[in-house]
Design a protein around this nucleic acid. Structure first.
Lengths: 130, 130
DNA sequence: ATCATACTTGCGCATTTATGCATATGTAAT
DNA sequence: ATTACATATGCATAAATGCGCAAGTATGAT
């Protein structure tokens, strides 16, 4: 009975994961665990676990590249999935203001579009405190 | 942080409640606890509790009428809510086939559009076994 | 080979959630 | 008033969930 869809709802029903999914939807780009961690400001294992849950639920795609793991928004084809993702997309951005800004900042640290600096780096902390 | 929306996701993330919500969306009519109970085939207290949760989550409206309590699909105005409800609406009907049929049957027992027979009645059992 | 780094995962604990049972509330009929 | 009936709810229990910690895997650099 639409087990995967139920998993997606369950995954989204948790504030941290909803934030993560919102982020992936709005950034429209691949994002590493380290980057998500810096942007969201949570522990590594939680970000890792939550991203993985969103992936297993069919909301994100996963792509491993060396020691980095990139997550992107999964492309949906079925209507109810598209609508579900759209629903999250249209959440009032006000709730996530800082998230979008911080993400832009963090992605600015990339080189040739790839993530090259790990989580909680000094460079990131400095960038944050400007 | 969008607490109500999170409640809605949580409410929908449970199979019985997802079924109930799907029912209310597709029947496009007010439905009593007794009717929902007969249609879904669960215990009274669970149907009562689950409908109430969907109501508290902002997905359903409640209207008490004598000893009957009617629930209807709540009218949404915000985009992310509309999309969320639409997502449930577009779930493959195949999953819920029997539900729709049974509901039509059960609503056929109404008089002047009002529910007049309680849960698990002999009449309902007979109607089911035709 | 060794080490640092990005990410993952098993375990234990605290909290939440679903469910059955029994009982309570509220309303209508007699 | 008493009874019948539709719905709600407190309580106990079992299962699921979130999270911190510590240890694990895997990859790249030296």
């Amino acid at each position: 009975m639409e087990l995967q869809y139920l998993d997606a709802l369950k995954a989204l029903a948790e504030p941290h994961r909803l934030r993560l999914c919102w982020l992936l939807i709005h950034v429209d780009q691949k994002v590493t665990v380290a980057e998500a961690m810096d942007v969201i400001g949570e522990t590594q294992y939680n970000v890792s676990r939550n991203l993985k849950m969103l992936f297993k639920a069919g909301l994100l795609d996963q792509e491993k590249n060396g020691k980095w793991v990139y997550y992107t928004l999964a492309k949906q084809t079925e209507k109810h999935w598209l609508l579900l993702v759209d629903s999250v997309r249209h959440l009032p951005a006000s709730q996530f203001e800082s998230v979008a800004g911080r993400c832009k900042l963090r992605l600015g640290m990339r080189v040739d579009g790839e993530c090259v600096v790990g989580p909680n780096s000094d460079d990131w902390i400095k960038l944050l405190n400007l």
